[in-house]
Computed example of a mutant assay.
Amino acid sequence: MAAAGGEPGEPSSQNVSDELFQNFYTEVKQIEKRDSVLTSKQQIDRLLRPGSSYFNLNPFEVLQIDPEATDDELKKRFRALSILVHPDKNQDDPDRAQKAFEVVDKSYKLLLEPEQKKRAVDVIQAGKEYVEHMVKQKKKQLKKDGKSQDVEEDDPEVFRQAVYKQTMKLFAELEIKRKEREAKDMHERKRAREEEIETAEKAKRDREWQKNFEESRDGRVDSWRTFQSKGKSKEKKSRSFLKPPKVKMEQRE
């Protein structure tokens, strides 16, 4: 029976993909074995190299460990790497060592949380699936053009590099989106706080105005009464001038 998705005798694209993926992780393990013997300085340089803020978003990349590693393997790797970069072991460069140690510690703690670990694994898987899709599209176009379906990603090392780059890109995009959400949330919280302060200040001003109004009310009433009484007094005086003089009767002799 012909393999699904291919010509008779040809391995299926899924089998090829699985084989490539297995080769990819075999290569990764070889690199991990090689890099695990890096000196303390080399590990610090690796963790603090230019662009490390994005390289180090992948906790498996930081710890140089397979995503399928067990918790026990993860713990052993963390201990070995943390000892290499610990400031006490690098007293000639304690500041950089401290930063590198913090990167290792953060990645380890992240992978101890099931949800965070799953998220990291999902990103790596998404990167792999994207590269597989692109390879499949390339082969499909080559077949349509009647050309050889050999592509550079058939080389396990090229495939590994492609997955690595795509994975790093996905981690970077997620981090950028996270920062954007964080900035937006911070702006919203700041705006809400400003509105809260403005509302409180307005209420305070209203209370002070009402208080001053009530405290000065008696004074205003007294002033009005005084004004009214003075007005009546003036009116009486004005009327007295209007009285006609008394006429004296002439006395006859």
Rank of each mutant, 00 (worst) to 15 (best):
V62Y: 11
Q64E: 13
Q64T: 13
Q64R: 15
Q64L: 15
Q64W: 14
I65W: 13
D66F: 13
P67G: 13
P67N: 13
E68M: 14
E68V: 10
E68S: 15
T70H: 12
D72S: 11
E73C: 11
E73W: 12
L74W: 09
R77Y: 08
R77T: 12
L81D: 06
L81T: 15
L81N: 07
S82I: 14
I83R: 07
L84E: 02
H86W: 09
D88N: 08
D88R: 09
N90Y: 04
Q91E: 10
Q91A: 06
D92I: 05
D92M: 04
D93F: 06
D95P: 00
D95H: 08
D95F: 11
R96D: 13
A97K: 08
A100H: 10
A100K: 10
V103R: 08
V103N: 03
V103Y: 06
D105H: 14
D105R: 15
K106P: 06
S107N: 13
S107G: 14
Y108P: 02
K109R: 15
L110N: 04
L111E: 04
L112E: 14
L112Q: 15
E113H: 12
P114W: 15
E115G: 03
Q116T: 08
K117E: 07
K117Y: 03
V121K: 03
D122E: 11
D122Y: 03
D122L: 07
D122F: 04
I124T: 11
I124S: 10
Q125N: 09
A126C: 01
G127V: 06
K128D: 02
K128R: 12
E129A: 14
V131R: 05
V131I: 15
E132L: 11
E132D: 10
V135C: 04
K136V: 00
Q137T: 11
K140G: 00
K140Y: 03
Q141T: 04
L142H: 02
K144C: 00
D145I: 02
D145T: 01
G146A: 01
K147P: 03
S148M: 02
S148D: 10
D150T: 02
V151T: 08
E153D: 04
D155W: 05
P156K: 07
E157M: 13
V158I: 14
R160V: 00
Q161Y: 05
Q161H: 05
A162E: 01
Y164E: 12
K165I: 05
Q166E: 14
Q166M: 14
T167Q: 08
M168Q: 14
K169P: 00
F171T: 03
E173M: 10
L174S: 04
L174C: 01
K177L: 13
K179Q: 15
E180W: 01
E180S: 00
E180K: 03
R181S: 02
R181C: 00
E182G: 01
E182V: 03
K184H: 04
M186D: 10
M186R: 14
H187C: 00
H187R: 08
H187S: 03
H187L: 05
R189Y: 07
R189W: 06
